[in-house]
């Protein structure tokens, strides 16, 4: 049956045209390079996304730490006071008392103890900063 266009008696029917167009569609195939190109493009984009996410979480951590800065400073100053200045004051007091009551050699011995303790303390601090679990040697001067 013709398509209703009687002026073109020999013209193609709707169905014939549809079949011709359909056969053309079957000829079009993606090139073999498309699949690897898509996969590598997605891999690249995904890696970029992961890097972006890591960077974002780092930035968020920094942003969260900023308001906590006074607390961190307070904790660190307490730690410094308890572990450094108090023993230092004790040594100074000891030296002062020794100076009054003891001989020079006793004074020098107190000095030596203090420097030995300070060396240990610095090492311990370095270990803490490195995040190691090693225990520091006794800090008592």
């Amino acid at each position: 049956m013709k398509s209703g266009h009687d002026e073109f008696e020999d013209s193609l029917t709707d169905l014939e045209i549809e079949k011709l167009v359909e056969s053309l569609g079957q000829e079009i195939r993606p090139s073999s390079s498309l699949r690897p190109a898509i996969l590598s493009s997605i891999k690249r984009v995904t890696i970029d996304q992961i890097a972006h996410r890591k960077l974002s979480s780092f930035a968020i951590t920094i942003l969260l730490l900023i308001p906590m800065q006074p607390d961190i400073e307070q904790v660190s100053s307490k730690w410094r006071d308890a572990n450094f200045f108090q023993p230092l004051r004790r040594v100074e007091e000891e030296i002062y008392l020794n100076k009054k009551d003891e001989s020079d050699s006793t004074n020098w011995a107190a000095h030596d103890r203090f420097f030995k303790w300070r060396k240990n303390h610095v090492e311990q601090f370095a270990r803490v900063m490195r995040g190691t679990q090693q225990k520091a040697s006794p800090m008592t001067p």
């Binding site: 569609g25 079009i28 195939r29 993606p30 090139s31 498309l34 190109a37 898509i38 493009s41 997605i42 984009v45 995904t46 996304q49």
Partner: peptide
């Protein structure tokens, strides 16, 4: 998708580029 994009653009190379961009967008 390639057939459709090629049909619209009239160019297979463009059609494949479009499909690559679209599928990358979907994957992300």
């Amino acid at each position: 998708l390639v057939r459709y994009a090629t049909g619209i653009t009239g160019n297979q190379h463009d059609g494949e580029d479009i499909v690559q961009a679209v599928l990358t967008k979907v994957a992300t």
